[in-house]
Computed example of a mutant assay.
Amino acid sequence: MALYDLFSHPVERSYRAGLCSKAALFLLVAAALTYIPPLLVAFRSHGFWLKRSSYEEQPTVRFQHQVLLVALLGPESGGFLAWSTFPAFNRLQGDRLRVPLVLVRWRKNNCGFCH
């Protein structure tokens, strides 16, 4: 069974207030808060799009007494000499292994990276 509209009447209500009323003041404040804070955020953050950025970080340096040294003999010969503090790496080098004299001098609190 189909239903038919027998009667309809649209209701329209409008409310009016003067320019110096509380409702008009509220409407003005609400409109100002809609537009001004985003503009202030954009101004304070120097725009919405990042134009240039940089990042610096101070590394934490811990001396662990581990060394890997590879010395190239020249571009034409293609050979190299190697040494490290890792015994397994030294065993792999065979006759290219050279054991240098290594001295370590540690000065506490004089290093720019140490704390």
Rank of each mutant, 00 (worst) to 15 (best):
S77H: 04
K22L: 15
E57A: 07
L69P: 00
K108C: 04
L101G: 07
A32W: 05
R16T: 10
L6W: 09
T34R: 10
V70S: 03
H65I: 05
V41L: 03
L50W: 11
A42P: 02
S54Y: 05
Q58P: 02
G79Q: 15
L40K: 06
L33H: 10
A71H: 10
Q93M: 15
R13M: 08
P75V: 07
F63K: 02
R98H: 11
S84Y: 00
N110K: 13
A71W: 10
Q93A: 11
P87T: 08
Q66P: 01
L40E: 04
S45N: 15
R52H: 13
R52E: 14
R105H: 14
W83S: 00
L68Q: 06
G79S: 12
F80I: 02
L33P: 02
V99E: 05
L50D: 13
A17L: 02
A23D: 12
S53Y: 11
Q93V: 03
K51P: 02
W83R: 00
G112P: 03
N109S: 15
P37R: 05
L27I: 06
C111T: 07
M1W: 07
V102N: 01
L39D: 05
L69W: 10
A30Q: 01
L81A: 09
N109D: 12
R62P: 00
S14H: 06
A23P: 00
L27D: 07
R62A: 12
Q66N: 12
S84P: 00
E57R: 06
S45A: 12
G112F: 03
L28K: 10
N109R: 13
A17V: 11
T85E: 02
G47W: 02
F26G: 10
Q93T: 02
H65W: 12
T85V: 09
L19C: 05
L33E: 03
S8M: 07
F48A: 06
L92W: 05
S53H: 10
P38A: 01
L39K: 07
S77T: 13
Y15H: 11
K51G: 07
V11S: 06
H65E: 14
L19V: 10
F89A: 13
Y4M: 13
S54M: 04
L27E: 10
A82K: 00
P75A: 10
R62N: 07
V102L: 07
R62K: 15
P87L: 04
D5V: 15
A32L: 05
L101K: 14
K108W: 08
